[in-house]
Amino acid sequence: MKRIALLLWLSLVLPLAAASDAHREYDAMETYEPHVRGDQSLSGSYKHWAHPGKLDWRLAGNPEENWKLNWKFMDPPFNASVHGGHFALDRGEQLFRELNAKARFARCLGAGKAGLKGLRARYPQYRADLKRIAGLEEVIEYCAAREGRVLQNGSYDNSAVSLYVASQSNGMPMRVDVGKGVMRDAFERGRKLFHTRAGKLHLACSSCHTHKVGLQLRGSVITTPYGDAVHYPVYRTRYFLQSLHLRFAECNLDTRTQPLVPGSRAYTDLEVFMTALSNGYPVTVPSERD
């Protein structure tokens, strides 16, 4: 009897051991500074977009060179046009007021005495009630459910509320501390994922966005991962309103990789990594991208 139990136990452990050694491939594992200035040693384009109020309009108008602005010319204050992001912002404000009728929703999101001011700049963060690190959109879904409303992570209304909450931190520098504990672990996992080859085309994020920045993929120029997370959720002119996790899903689909659902652990770790690479750069919404 004991022998059978042992055999069964082995039949469990052996494949598991084999599985954890499954062959995966990685790009050369680069190091990144958890601050937007880290781009100085990656693409060097930082000097062109470091100050959102002082972009060089000559670069913006030149399709050969506008990548050096990291597409910040599509953000306010440079981009003063009204677009779908503004409608989403209005919708988000209205939804927020309904959800916060009893003043519980904002508290659930983590608002203190300063209200929503600065809240966006501190996400993703560890949530003791969820017992894990969560992005703002995951927490909006959770807190809305407590008010009896369904706002699925990635849905228009969820992103609209996220956009409104972010707008209350506009101009404030992102500051996600990944220096210690579970946040540092998440940053490291995110960094590893960024270098992990996946999908049918066998590409990692870093295959292009670390090692090929400034080169062309057909009509597009590859940009830096630094300073990118601050304008999400973003209004995509061809895709409506898009959260960062839905952007990850789109990146996966573009490289023929099976996407994950918003709020998955892997996407959240990538969000921690990407957001830390925006530390020090001001939250900028509503923004649009092609």
């Binding site: 369904v150 699925q152 228009y156 023929r256 990789t257």
Partner: peptide
């Protein structure tokens, strides 16, 4: 993404990408 909705819709993708490893 469905405008003014709290639900996210999922549509069939043109290709089956499940045979290759993901980032999960």
């Amino acid at each position: 993404v469905v405008t003014n909705s709290g639900r996210l819709e999922w549509l069939p993708h043109a290709h089956n990408l499940t045979p290759w490893p993901t980032l999960s």
